[in-house]
Each structure stands twice: as C-alpha cells, then as structure tokens.
Amino acid sequence: MDNIYTTPEHELLREQVARFIAREVEPHGAAWEEAGRVPRDVLRRMGQAGLLGLMYEGRYGGGDADALTNLVFAEALSQSTFAGFIITVLVHTDMAGPHLHHAGSAAQKEKYLHKVTAGEMIAAVGITEPGAGSDVAGIRTTARRDGADWVLNGTKMFITNGVHADLYFIAAKTGAGRHDMTMFVVEKGTPGFSVGRALKKTGWLSSDTAELVLDNVRIPAANVLGEEGKGFYSVMKNFQTERIALAAMAVGHCTQALQLTLGYVRQRQAFGATLWDQQTIRQRLSMLDARTRAARSFMYHCAWSVTQGRDIVQEVSMLKALTGELVNEVVQTCQQFHGGMGYIRETAIERLWRDARVLAIGGGATEVMLEEVAKRY
C-alpha cells in the first residue's frame, strides 16, 4: 500500500527491514518466545546494518532521519508476526533511546549513544510503577540530592527490556509539585539497582519485562538527563514518538492478520464452498481492510505533521486510541474466521491475537488517550 508521504528511499528501507526479518527473525521467533528474550547478537546485527539509530545524529552512528523515515522503519518492522521482537527493538529505538537523543548532554551522548545505535548497549525506560501507569505524574520513585550525587529509591513495573538492558532512563520525583520529576541515566550493575523479578505475560513472549527496584541507588549529578525538574515534560514529548510507533505496530498487525485470513478463507472448504464464498465474510474483511487503510493514512499524516513542527498531541492521542482498539477488533475477527485453528498456539493468527491485546493498554490506555483528545477541544 503506497502513499503520498513516502519516497523511493523509504521503500528501500522497507525492503531492507523485510529482508532482515525474513532472514534473522521469522525462522527463529518461536524459539525466542520459548526462551523469553531476543538474542543480543541479533540486535547487534541490526545495529551493524544501521537500523537502531535512524533518528539519531550521524556523528553518533545515527541516520539523521525524520519522523516519516522512523515511521517507515516501525511499520516495516511490524510486518513480523513476532511482536515480542518488534517491541524489544521499538523500545530501544523509539521509546527509551529518544530520551538520550533529545535531552542528553554532549558528554552523555558521547559516552552512550554510539553504543546504543550499534546495539552494544540495549536501552529501557523506567516510568511506569505499580501505582502509576498512564498517570505519569503519579509516580512515587524519589531522587534526593546528597552532596555531588543523587540517591534514587522506588520501584518500576512493566519495564520492557527491563531484565536484559544495559542502560536505563529512570523517572523520579525531585520536588513536591505533581510535575516535579527528573530523568536519570542508570547503568546496569549500579549498586542498589536490581531486577526485582521477570514478569510473565500473555503476549509479547520474546520480550523480557521486569519489575525494577532502586534501593538507595547513588549516581553522580552527571547522570541527570536533561533539565532538573523538567522530566515530566520530556516524558510527554517522547510519548508522541512512542505512540506513533505503537500505532505502526497495530497497523502492521492488522495488515498481517488480514493477509493471513484472506489466504485462509479462500482455501478453507465448508458446506460445499470456500469461506470466501460466504458474503458476510467477504464483506466483513473488506470493511476491516478499509478501516485499516484509513488508520494507516492518518498515521502517516501524523508523522508528516511532526516533520512540519506542528503540535499534534491531540491527533496522536486519537491515533493511539483508534489503532489500539482497531487492531483488537481486526485480529479477533480474523481469528474467528480461522475457526479452531485460530486457537492453536503454533499459528501466527493466535500469536497476533495474544500480542494485539496490550496495544489498547500500553503507552497510554485508550480511555486516557480519549481524555487527552477531549481536553484539547
């Protein structure tokens, strides 16, 4: 499905990612789901191919790309049927790494960003807590100044890449105000910083997810990421990139589910004809495809608007709510049309069904997104 926003260079990137997925991911994804993680050497090969830092500065190994290019990458990545792999990469490139890209000092970028783009250091972002998810301002992790250092205490929950990451960008309260928070760089191995437990999930099985514990974690003032006390606004800014990436993931799942189902219903015989011969099935799939294409066009318009410097918090919130709900409807309907085979663990459609559910929750639940829309009217 071509669109007016992409260029031949974008399509070359899409083809490059497709080749990587066919060669490096699809043959091994089932084993990664059993293991509960994506092998580090696969991520390093992505880095070597220039795929882990498209939006970052060229002098740090990045591609100096814009939001449209980044969307093409996320959408191409989302043609894999293994969402655990997809989210492992997108958290690194679009959800954690941007904090360093946008707010990091020259010294911090020189120290870390080369390794992030090369896949030598895998990144995670620690915002969500047991009592604070979409309500970012409700976090309770604290950071207090102690001489030349900061001391962090608290717990983070549902952290993607949390078990195996090397570099964590942690949000902590640094003042009494609701929005008084600061971002910090914390390296794995820092005394007092640990993985409380690895979490077992319904989907995204090859993505490691963790509870993180910060028990008097002492870090130098040089590890403050961005401006002290302004972390809330940094998180809000990065949410736009994150939510477009999650929309790309949702649209990719819709596209894959529809392709799988169109192939299946055309050959599946029932009552003397194929399922495709049933008018209700043909029409239902046609409408879901139309809505997927409409959502995709809106998604590209949002990314293009970012390149124009527009304030599109309302539109991106609409996009996240729309695609998070749409993917669940599309994938569940496609699973239904697979009959019993749609409930078998080894099938791609069953995996997409499990993996799609969280896209209406993570990165901003649908209800929260709709409130973000409504308060901007």
Rank of each mutant, 00 (worst) to 15 (best):
A30I: 14
W32K: 08
W32C: 07
E33H: 09
E33D: 15
A35T: 03
G36K: 09
G36R: 11
G36S: 12
R37P: 00
R37Y: 13
V38N: 10
V38F: 08
V38A: 10
P39F: 08
D41S: 14
V42D: 04
V42Y: 02
L43Y: 07
L43H: 08
G47N: 09
Q48S: 15
A49L: 08
G50T: 01
L51I: 07
L51T: 07
L52F: 05
L54P: 00
L54N: 02
L54I: 09
M55R: 11
M55A: 14
Y56E: 08
Y56T: 04
Y56V: 02
E57S: 09
E57Q: 13
E57V: 01
G58Y: 07
R59D: 02
R59C: 06
R59K: 15
R59G: 01
Y60F: 15
G61M: 07
G61C: 08
G62S: 09
D64S: 11
D64I: 02
A65R: 07
A65Q: 07
D66G: 15
D66I: 03
A67D: 09
T69H: 06
V72Y: 02
V72M: 12
V72R: 10
F73K: 05
E75Q: 13
A76R: 10
L77M: 14
S78G: 09
S78P: 00
T81F: 13
A83H: 11
